[in-house]
Simulated assay, not measured.
Amino acid sequence: MSRDVSGKRFQGRGTMSAIPGRFEVHSIEAENNFYSVSSPDTEVRYEHAKTLITSNQSPDIPFRLSVNPYRGCEHGCIYCFARPTHAYLNLSPGIDFETRLTAKINAPEIFEAELRHPNYQCQPIALGINTDAYQPIEKELKITQKLLNIACEYKQPVSIITKSSLILRDIDLLQSMASEHLVHVGVSLTTLDHDLSRRLEPRAVPGAVRLKMIRALRERNIPVTVMIAPVIPFINDHELETLVQASIDAGADRVGYVMLRLPHEVAPLFEDWLQQHFPLRAERVLSHIRSMHGGQLYQGEFGKRMTGSGVYADFIRQRFHLARRKMGAEERKSEQLDCRRFQVPPRRGDQIALF
């Protein structure tokens, strides 16, 4: 496990570590296993994807189909469960994940082709699940915006989860889709402590801005779920009730939570982060995380990986449900996205139907 022995860190980056991915056969180790002290620039590689819509069978998540226009994420959230996916690219789940990004530049063309395929059967598609579809490079590339325009044209229902205020750029389009029950937005909310936010998720907007996002979306009748995530023992767990109340006050339709997840390379990266930012609490934090996962830092078992188990996990669960009940916001069913409206619009050159 790499360690920042110099005490220095990159300005605006979640980690300094160039920890190798678990599939690396060869690795080049710089002094202290870190890049140079100066913060590396963000590099974007353009990929021509062969397919775009992917499917999963996980019972823990409420969607089967998803689309991810980007690999890696410049927000730099130290806790991001998607960091290990960079290992498949022979890149570091550490600093590479937030500085060496991939944009699927032909995603709109592939998306439209897959929607037009004769075998495609419409069901909701989750947009930007592994990495934020509205991360900073979207401002220039506009891949997500193009995907939404196609979804709107085809009446293809989508759900989005983001922590970026850039989503408000597309609020007119989202309002139009919401009027036909074609979109649902999820906003992740981690903390209202600006200093903690800057450490945990250095290039994401702070919690106060996300509350303004929720208000703006709800003013346009766009359904919003807030996901308080991740809940971290002795780091932000004391904010749980405050975050529930702030979410409801901002107009959120539903509120949920997810405990911290530390799969694969995320665990050593998070341990390094703890030692750097909260060294006096580190052992206590890790001890409580282990208590939720049978003595390990992570268990990938369905039904438990999002919430954990044991005394501390039960305590958080009870606090969350009590806070939601006090706010008069008991568990509500999310508004169903409408797949019945899906239609493939005609294109020039299509064969005219014979009568």
Rank of each mutant, 00 (worst) to 15 (best):
204 A>I: 03
246 A>K: 07
203 R>Y: 02
209 V>K: 12
236 N>T: 09
216 A>T: 14
245 Q>C: 06
218 R>T: 15
235 I>P: 01
216 A>F: 02
204 A>V: 12
207 G>F: 03
241 E>N: 12
231 V>C: 10
244 V>I: 13
237 D>W: 12
226 V>Y: 06
235 I>Y: 06
232 I>Y: 10
217 L>I: 10
224 V>P: 13
209 V>T: 14
210 R>S: 02
223 P>D: 05
216 A>Q: 14
210 R>V: 01
210 R>G: 02
245 Q>H: 11
211 L>Q: 04
246 A>M: 08
237 D>M: 09
207 G>V: 00
236 N>G: 09
239 E>M: 04
225 T>Q: 13
249 D>I: 05
233 P>N: 09
242 T>G: 15
243 L>F: 11
213 M>Y: 06
237 D>V: 05
240 L>M: 15
210 R>Q: 09
243 L>V: 02
243 L>R: 06
203 R>L: 08
239 E>W: 11
241 E>V: 13
231 V>T: 07
207 G>I: 00
214 I>G: 05
220 R>N: 12
247 S>C: 04
247 S>M: 04
239 E>I: 03
230 P>H: 10
242 T>D: 14
248 I>G: 13
232 I>W: 11
244 V>Y: 01
238 H>Y: 15
230 P>N: 05
236 N>A: 13
205 V>N: 06
213 M>A: 07
241 E>S: 15
203 R>A: 12
242 T>L: 15
247 S>R: 02
248 I>R: 14
249 D>H: 08
215 R>F: 03
212 K>Y: 04
205 V>L: 05
240 L>W: 09
233 P>V: 01
226 V>Q: 00
249 D>A: 13
246 A>Y: 05
